[in-house]
Write a protein that binds this DNA or RNA. Structure first.
Lengths: 190, 190
DNA sequence: TAGGACATGTAATCAGTTACATGATTAA
DNA sequence: TTAATCATGTAACTGATTACATGTCCTA
């Protein structure tokens, strides 16, 4: 009721995430955006599905926040690249300034299994935890690569700070899983 | 197509989370479940909305995984308490054994703001990060309380392990936010 | 010649939230 | 008397996913 007029411009976070990606470098296709978000947003936020990105792009365009341009990359294939507009930038800045920040979410599906450890096979549990430890280490390697890349350009100074945050927390996650595994192994022996 | 028969029994994770809560202690109401999940699942997974819990309870009952019993708590108010059935326990164990584990998700809404720091007021950014640091510390206090409680009973030995994991990672999150704040402050001074 | 990367989208579905509806009890 | 807690649910909505549809180019 209240806000029915105001909320016309209130978009899901994904819209702003896409707009944000576009604020770094213009002229990207939906495909490019998906790839890049898999290598950046994914670490601390989430990477939307491809179809979701195309959907957002359509919406953003109808709002005048992005413009599309057809690019012929070769004789047969066409590519539609998007750029953020002045209006889009303004909307992004408004959102950054005014939108309330939702509480952070940590969804560790593996821990739900451990939590219900009494109903599970202890060895399976140890395996699951080991896998998570490895997954965290793999993420860490990707992050380190990503940080090294991002440091090359001044333009990514903020993303670098965020990735360093992620690095620290991912390290802690890996260690916490290692500790948990040790505890589970000890528990299994008794 | 494949699985159209098999998937009849494939439920969303929330169903199993509710079933899991019920596996610890029987005879809980929807209201109880919501409260408890706010103090346990929330830390490492997520706490479903009240209406969501009631919905799951209905579904679980129709599958024969839980039974309901009416409890008259005083002259006027009635309470419907639920207990897990043998079938429910079997379904939970099957899920724990067989279901693939989805990748973990970390959604730090505040970091999306930092990531887009070039489009934001630096002082506002520092404030936002400070708030996250405090939020993490508040979570830490709740966790410590929760761990102390859970240690009182043998039955919660697995939940204690999970909460210790959370404690460690939440500490790291708080520290990572503190470090980030320091970097932002330094950046602002230059 | 098969598989992966490039490239774009629609349609169906789903998991979950918010808003709403209702009403008693208890503590400040 | 006001707010919080107890207590249960339905209905409308929405954000996002999965499945599907289509086709080229390049590499092993």
């Amino acid at each position: 009721m209240l806000g029915s007029v105001t909320d016309r411009t209130r978009l899901p976070t994904t819209s702003y995430a896409v707009l944000g990606l576009l604020s770094f470098r213009g002229a990207m296709s939906g495909y490019d955006l998906k790839k890049w978000s898999d290598f950046s947003l994914r670490f601390f936020f989430w990477s939307p599905a491809t179809s979701n990105i195309y959907g957002e792009l359509t919406r953003l365009r109808s709002l005048g926040y992005v413009t599309a341009r057809e690019v012929r990359q070769d004789d047969l294939r066409n590519k539609r690249v998007f750029s953020i507009t002045k209006d889009g930038r303004a909307a992004l800045e408004r959102w950054l300034r005014d939108a309330p920040i939702e509480p952070s979410v940590l969804k560790e599906h593996a821990l739900l299994r451990v939590w219900l450890g009494d109903s599970t096979d202890p060895d399976r549990l140890i395996e699951v935890v080991k896998e998570q430890e490895q997954a965290a280490q793999a993420t860490l390697a990707q992050l380190e690569h990503s940080i090294a890349e991002a440091r090359k350009s001044e333009r990514f100074s903020y993303p670098v700070l965020v990735e360093e945050w992620c690095e620290r927390v991912t390290k802690a996650r890996a260690e916490a899983y290692a500790e948990l595994r040790a505890k589970l192994e000890k528990k299994a022996r008794t």
